[in-house]
């Protein structure tokens, strides 16, 4: 029982990190970013390159991995997505292309074999008799912390207020003197950065290989549909639901059934409440 509680929390935190970035860039810039899973994979590979290959210390490698993927996201938005913003379909196609290109790029550069990233924390921790890898616990703590910081940033800072304004009415935001394009860049950096951080954090205990971004991408999409596209509390709630349902299914039935959970959740949501649990027009 406690095992489910702890492992479910770890999955939920990682899902939430992925889903929040995905929903944020949609809510603010109306970009349905199919390259979001690629950011996650790039984060994991960057961690691999910086730690396993270059042997940089972790406190440099991890932030650098996150920053470089954030930069990649910003460049993608600026030069590939922005010129196509007039069409949702074109945005979908270009982000899908980026996603496939990243996967191929990783395949060509690193091959298809699994790569290992050393654990940041090797110790095992015992909570109430349940053993849990320190790395998983770190992922949980970091995930919660990042979401908390993001929340504070958006609610308490001037830039955060501008992000909310653009997500609720981009034209009116312009009349306030808010440079909407710059806001898109900031949000893209946050979105890509959190996805990359998720990738960095899981890289020691999940398999690092070129297609690793696909499933989390599908999960993030599912969570965002269940939670309501554009709603951050909705995606956190849905991440918890999905993280726990999957963990429970894995325990009660078998782990090969877990991937079905998100798909069933999506179908049920779309049939019963297509706008999602907390679906509204805007982010937050």
């Amino acid at each position: 029982m406690l095992e489910i509680l702890i492992y479910g929390a770890v999955s939920s935190a990682i899902y939430a990190m992925l889903a929040v970035g995905f929903t944020l860039i949609f809510g603010v810039a109306r970009i349905l970013n199919l390259a979001h899973g690629a950011f996650y994979a790039l984060g994991a590979y960057a961690a691999y390159v910086f730690t396993s290959l270059l042997h940089w210390p972790l406190f440099i490698a991890a932030p650098l991995a996150v920053l470089s993927v954030a930069l990649f996201g910003v460049l993608m938005e600026r030069f590939l997505v922005r010129p196509l913003r007039y069409s949702q379909l074109a945005v979908l196609m270009i982000t899908l292309s980026v996603s496939l290109a990243v996967e191929q790029g990783l395949f060509i550069t690193f091959g298809s074999e699994y790569r290992n990233v050393p654990s940041f924390v090797a110790e095992k921790v015992s909570i109430g008799g349940v053993d849990i890898g320190g790395q998983r616990l770190l992922a949980l703590i970091a995930g919660v912390l990042v979401l908390l910081l993001l929340w504070l940033f958006i609610q308490r800072t001037r830039l955060g207020a501008a992000i909310l304004a653009v997500s609720q009415d981009p034209e009116a935001a312009q009349y306030m003197g808010i440079p909407t394009n710059r806001i898109f860049s900031v949000v893209m950096a946050i979105s890509a950065g959190t996805a990359a951080l998720a990738g960095v954090l899981v890289s020691p205990f999940l398999t690092v290989q070129p297609t690793m971004g696909l499933l989390p991408m599908v999960k993030a999409f599912a969570i965002v549909i269940v939670g309501g596209l554009g709603s951050i509390p909705g995606s956190i709630l849905a991440a918890l639901l999905l993280g726990y349902s999957e963990t429970i299914v894995a325990y009660l039935i078998s782990s090969s059934w877990t991937e079905l959970v998100s798909l069933v959740a999506v179908v049920i949501t779309l049939m019963i409440k297509p706008s999602g649990l907390l679906g509204r027009r805007a982010a937050f």
Partner: peptide
């Protein structure tokens, strides 16, 4: 806006989910 022209648009266009105060503060962005 920076040059000194502020536009109060047709249909009000408030930021619907933000408080009155936040809306006003955004005017001074």
């Amino acid at each position: 806006v920076a040059r000194g022209i502020c536009h109060c648009p047709e249909g009000r266009r408030l930021f619907p989910e933000l408080s009155v105060l936040k809306n006003l503060q955004l005017g001074a962005y």
